[in-house]
């Protein structure tokens, strides 16, 4: 079983690369080929070893839900989740087609007839849950950055404000999302009482919890970045008598961008981790809820499906980090800096 999986995972990309590089082979010097091989082969080998160990170890562990799933079963469940998603999409499409037909008929009979347009309310699929989580984390992270960057800048510029904010930052920074969540939930349900809410309460709960947990690294890093601006550049700004705004935009912001982005990346990572926990605990829609539902469901496939979620969470987290890295490269003035 294991070897099958390996073949399945391994052969497709390798074939692709072989085809891709066959034509180039003559043009590339040996060194290039070697480096290429290194950068592709080493990670592949390491990953294969990981899969082997996993497969071997998993078969040794018996749980109440059967044997711990190995890579093959997890892959299988991943495919099942894809199928379920496509099926659900099909259902949804048929639902809307039917509704449209019905309404068209009604209007043909009586042009003034009131037509009902209902939205489809099927069960959210795995991919719907990923999307929900992404939107939620983006919201929480965006709100956090909106506050954290200006706070960080003023704290870095003014020692007085730093002294004022620092105790608060230090106290709230280590608080776990699980502690914030009840408070946030209570406040949101007390304050947010619109009749026709634009956002779901659960979405707000998760997003705000993410904000509260991921705001701190950005504040701290921005503060450090701003307060560590080279003395020489500040002297230049003094000699030129730059105004506050010019100083911030021409000197403070560019020179603190590396630190700021380091903070933003940590923040986004924390936000993503926190979100999953918050969704699990509060039963808010998203990947966390998916994991919790599967856990409660307790079917023989549950563990494999949870593992698919684990990989999805990891991959999304990784992609979010790469996204921030690209953004950082884009706005960074120092194109030679090695960013990882």
């Amino acid at each position: 079983m294991t070897t099958d999986t390996l073949k399945m995972l391994g052969s497709a990309p390798m074939r692709y690369f072989n085809k891709r590089f066959e034509g180039f082979r003559e043009d590339f010097s040996n060194i290039n080929l070697q480096e290429l091989a290194k950068s592709i082969v080493i990670p592949c080998v390491a990953f294969s070893i990981f899969l082997l160990i996993w497969a071997a170890a998993a078969s040794q562990v018996n749980t109440s839900l059967g044997k711990l799933p190995g890579p093959a079963r997890v892959w299988e469940q991943a495919m099942v989740l894809v199928d379920e998603h496509n099926e659900e999409r099909g259902k949804e499409q048929r639902f809307y087609e039917r509704q449209e037909k019905r309404n068209a008929l009604k209007l043909a009979e009586d042009p003034n007839a009131e037509v009902k347009i209902r939205t489809y309310t099927g069960k959210p699929t795995f991919f719907d849950q990923i999307w929900t989580s992404l939107v939620t984390v983006a919201t929480g992270f965006f709100i956090a950055s909106l506050f954290a960057i200006p706070i960080g800048i003023v704290c870095g510029l003014s020692p007085v404000l730093y002294q004022a904010f620092n105790p608060l930052i230090q106290i709230f920074k280590p608080v776990s999302p699980l502690a914030w969540l009840p408070i946030v939930t209570m406040i949101v349900s007390a304050v947010y009482v619109a009749n026709d809410p634009m956002f779901e309460k659960s979405y707000l709960n998760s997003a705000i919890t993410v904000t509260l947990c991921c705001i701190w690294p950005t504040i701290i890093n921005t503060t450090v970045g701003v307060s560590n601006i080279s003395k020489d550049l500040l002297n230049v700004s003094q000699v030129l008598r730059l105004g506050w705004w010019t100083r911030v935009t021409k000197i403070v912001l560019p020179s603190s961008i590396p630190m700021m982005f380091a903070g933003l990346r940590v923040s986004l990572g924390i936000g993503w981790m926190v979100l999953i926990a918050a969704e699990m605990l509060a039963q808010n829609p998203g990947l966390g809820k998916f994991v919790w539902d599967e856990f409660q469901n307790g079917s023989s496939n549950s563990l494999a499906r949870i593992m698919v979620a684990v990989f999805a969470i990891g991959l999304v987290g990784f992609m979010l980090d790469r996204l921030m890295l690209q953004l950082q490269k884009k706005v960074s003035w120092d194109k030679n800096a090695v960013l990882r």
Partner: peptide
């Protein structure tokens, strides 16, 4: 009593803004 452009300084380590 304060810095100003009437006393321009050429700093030892150039102090140019690296992003400009």
């Amino acid at each position: 009593d304060e810095p100003g452009p009437d006393r321009a300084v050429v700093f030892q380590n150039h102090s140019l803004l690296p992003w400009l």
